[in-house]
Amino acid sequence: MDVEPVGQVRIAVPGGTLAALRFGTGPRIALAAHGITASGMSFRAVAAQLPTDWSLVALDLRGRGGSNQLPGPYGMDRHAADICAAAEQAGGGRPVVLIGQSMGAYAALRATATRPELFSRLVLVDGGLPLPVPPDADPDQLLATTLGPAIARLSDTFASEQAYLDFFRAHPALAGDWNEHMAAYVRYDATGPQGAVRSRTDAVAVAEDGRDLLVNAASFGPDLIGLTVPSVLLYAPRGMFGQEPGMLPEPLVQHWRAQAPALRTELVGGTNHYTILLTDGPAAAIAKWITAG
Rank of each mutant, 00 (worst) to 15 (best):
residue 2 D to L: 02
residue 3 V to Y: 10
residue 6 V to Y: 07
residue 12 A to H: 12
residue 13 V to L: 13
residue 14 P to T: 11
residue 18 L to D: 15
residue 19 A to P: 08
residue 22 R to S: 09
residue 23 F to L: 09
residue 26 G to T: 10
residue 31 L to W: 08
residue 31 L to G: 06
residue 32 A to W: 03
residue 36 I to Y: 08
residue 39 S to D: 02
residue 42 S to N: 07
residue 43 F to L: 08
residue 46 V to S: 10
residue 50 L to G: 05
residue 51 P to W: 14
residue 52 T to A: 14
residue 53 D to C: 14
residue 54 W to S: 02
residue 56 L to H: 11
residue 70 L to W: 04
residue 71 P to Q: 04
residue 74 Y to G: 01
residue 78 R to M: 04
residue 80 A to R: 03
residue 81 A to Y: 04
residue 84 C to N: 11
residue 88 E to Q: 15
residue 90 A to C: 13
residue 92 G to Q: 13
residue 97 V to M: 08
residue 102 S to Q: 08
residue 107 A to P: 01
residue 108 A to C: 03
residue 112 T to K: 02
residue 114 T to P: 05
residue 115 R to N: 10
residue 116 P to H: 05
residue 124 L to Q: 13
residue 125 V to R: 05
residue 130 P to W: 09
residue 131 L to A: 14
residue 133 V to Q: 04
residue 139 P to Q: 13
residue 140 D to L: 11
residue 141 Q to M: 10
residue 149 P to L: 10
residue 151 I to C: 01
residue 154 L to K: 10
residue 154 L to V: 08
residue 155 S to W: 05
residue 156 D to Y: 07
residue 157 T to S: 11
residue 157 T to R: 11
residue 161 E to S: 04
residue 166 D to V: 08
residue 169 R to Q: 11
residue 170 A to C: 07
residue 171 H to A: 12
residue 172 P to S: 09
residue 173 A to V: 05
residue 174 L to M: 15
residue 177 D to Y: 07
residue 178 W to V: 07
residue 181 H to P: 04
residue 182 M to S: 09
residue 183 A to L: 12
residue 185 Y to H: 15
residue 186 V to L: 11
residue 187 R to P: 00
residue 190 A to K: 11
residue 191 T to R: 10
residue 194 Q to N: 07
residue 195 G to T: 12
residue 195 G to E: 15
residue 196 A to L: 06
residue 202 D to I: 07
residue 209 D to H: 05
residue 209 D to L: 02
residue 210 G to W: 03
residue 211 R to A: 00
residue 214 L to K: 06
residue 215 V to P: 01
residue 215 V to M: 03
residue 216 N to G: 00
residue 218 A to G: 00
residue 221 G to D: 08
residue 222 P to E: 00
residue 222 P to I: 00
residue 225 I to C: 05
residue 226 G to L: 09
residue 227 L to W: 13
residue 227 L to T: 10
residue 235 Y to P: 00
residue 236 A to F: 03
residue 237 P to I: 04
residue 238 R to A: 15
residue 241 F to D: 08
residue 242 G to R: 01
residue 242 G to Y: 01
residue 244 E to R: 14
residue 245 P to D: 02
residue 247 M to N: 12
residue 247 M to T: 13
residue 251 P to W: 09
residue 255 H to V: 07
residue 255 H to A: 04
residue 256 W to S: 06
residue 258 A to L: 09
residue 261 P to C: 14
residue 263 L to I: 11
residue 266 E to A: 15
residue 268 V to R: 03
residue 270 G to P: 06
residue 271 T to M: 04
residue 272 N to M: 13
residue 283 A to E: 01
residue 284 A to C: 12
residue 287 A to R: 08
residue 289 W to D: 15
residue 289 W to R: 15
residue 290 I to K: 05
